[in-house]
Amino acid sequence: MMTLKVNGREHQVDAEADTPLLYVLRDDLKLNAAKYGCGLGQCGSCTVIVDGKAVLSCVVPMVLLEGKQVTTLEGLGTIAEPAPIQRAFMEEQAAQCGYCIPGMMMRAQALLQKNSKPTDEQIRAELEPHLCRCGTHMRILRAVHRAARLMDTADVSPAANGSAR
């Protein structure tokens, strides 16, 4: 049994020490957002935040996570009360299939937590470890810029209905 702190709650997890965090999140804690994409740290789909830093959960074994704080996309907000980053991705309609998007959002969230006004260049550089196959990149970039503005104004009222853009 190991103790893992996820989204502000402590969980007792029955997993072997070499189990990558991704499988504990998905299999033991039934969380959906972190995705298996490659298991090799090449695509970014599994990204979560550990102690404020974006981490590839498919290559981080449980043994390294004792006492650390894990945040997943589920921990940021809900459909009814989306976090600024979630609201921004909804408002920009920044998804096609959407499979890569949760990982992108967590990397962007980590960036915005330490740099509230990143430049376009900084956002692109930060997202370099992430792959998107649908070609949604332009919208992802716009969504991260929008999230920065939303966080800045701390205006987190729900997204207006009716128009995507």
Binding site: N32, A33, L73, E74, I79, M90, A95, G98
Partner: peptide, 10 residues
């Protein structure tokens, strides 16, 4: 999209 950006079963 809402479920896909909030960790819903999608």
């Amino acid at each position: 999209i809402p479920a896909k950006v909030t960790g819903g079963e999608a």
